[in-house]
Amino acid sequence: MKIVREAPSGSLVVDLGATKVASVVSSRIRTSALPVLPRATDELAWLAAWIAEELTPAIHRIVVAAAPEMDARGVVRRWPNRPEWLGLPLGTALAFNGVSVEILADGAAAALGEASEQGLERMLYLGLGTGVSTGWVVDGMPVPVREPIDLAHTTIADRSAECVCGRRGCVQAWASGRGIMDRIVGLGLGDLSWNDIARRWSGPALAHVRRGAVDALSAASRVGAEMFGCEVVVIGGRLVGLLPGLVADVRYSLGDGTLVRMGRLGGDATLHGAVALARVLDQPLRPR
């Protein structure tokens, strides 16, 4: 893990993903698998208890970068990778006495992390992990902070890939870790490891999978960059380094002068961004 800047005093920073959860208190990082339990309410209770173990009397704020799409009340509105969480009150579950809770989309947090790392004021971020996270940074801050504009479930011309959301042809169905694995199994190549996929990614056996991922990310880049006038697209996440040539292929596919960069923080971008936001929130308001 690339060293994360210290969380500000009094803040607990949490990265809630589909398969794992991580936290930062000061400079101490803790990670754990997010369990799959018989009921989603049990999983939420486990998460609340796990976070509560990190609380001390000095903690007055929790900043959560969350994979599920949330509404303004902190209720899960959508989470294709854990659909049973629909309607669960994440914000209320983490509302410990005397502690404020700030929730932002994981894509927004990762975008802020990469923007801070690469010195960018305006950019679109596409993160490849279990799913595909998206986020924008404008004037050095993620927008919108709480409710994501989700490019992962927009569709491309090739509708042959079924997505976990129930639709066909989503960007996530082609370019996420789960989607890529599903496409490979569909080709009859068996259950390959990511090291196997990395070795074969540029070869003929995975040409259809590679083309689908490139087309999906190119489509998301075009739409997303136009929305906020971004001339820089960063493709990151924990999987991008295992897919050789992917970023260059997307850059070539776009062919319109858009600057496409590889992320530098890998799967740690979300945690970096959440810490960066905690530091912003910790700054006193300046009088106008």
Rank of each mutant, 00 (worst) to 15 (best):
L265D: 03
A40G: 15
L259F: 10
V234D: 02
L151W: 01
H60V: 13
V145W: 07
V75W: 06
R211L: 03
G229Y: 09
I156G: 03
G236M: 07
G127V: 02
A216P: 06
S176L: 08
L126V: 06
L187P: 06
V64G: 00
R5D: 11
D139K: 09
A40E: 14
R167T: 04
V164Q: 05
V240I: 13
T155N: 07
T31E: 15
M262A: 13
R178V: 12
R200W: 04
G203H: 13
A219V: 03
S27A: 15
T154N: 07
A58T: 15
V63R: 05
S32E: 15
V99F: 05
S218R: 08
A213G: 04
S176E: 08
D15F: 04
G237P: 08
E6G: 14
G237M: 10
K2N: 14
D215F: 01
L88S: 07
L192D: 10
R251Y: 04
I103H: 00
R211F: 03
A152I: 02
T92V: 11
G266K: 12
A220H: 03
A105T: 03
P89D: 14
E54W: 08
R261P: 02
I197C: 11
H272A: 08
V21N: 06
H272G: 01
L90E: 07
P144W: 01
A225E: 04
V99G: 00
G255V: 08
E117P: 03
V233Y: 00
G263S: 11
W136H: 09
L187T: 05
V76E: 01
A161G: 01
G245S: 09
G273M: 03
P142W: 05
A58I: 14
V171Y: 02
R5H: 10
A105N: 12
I29T: 11
V247L: 05
L55Q: 11
S27P: 09
V280I: 14
W194T: 12
V145E: 02
L217S: 04
D71K: 12
V233G: 00
L112I: 00
L192M: 14
P204D: 13
G98C: 12
A219I: 04
L120W: 04
L124W: 02
G203Q: 14
G113S: 07
T92E: 15
R168Y: 00
V280T: 13
G166Y: 06
D215P: 01
G17T: 12
C170A: 07
V137I: 06
E114M: 07
R279T: 11
L246K: 05
A198Q: 15
Q172I: 03
S221Q: 07
E114N: 09
R167G: 03
A225Y: 03
R39T: 15
R77L: 11
W79N: 07
M1N: 13
E231W: 11
H153S: 03
E114I: 04
T154W: 01
Q283V: 12
G241K: 12
S221M: 08
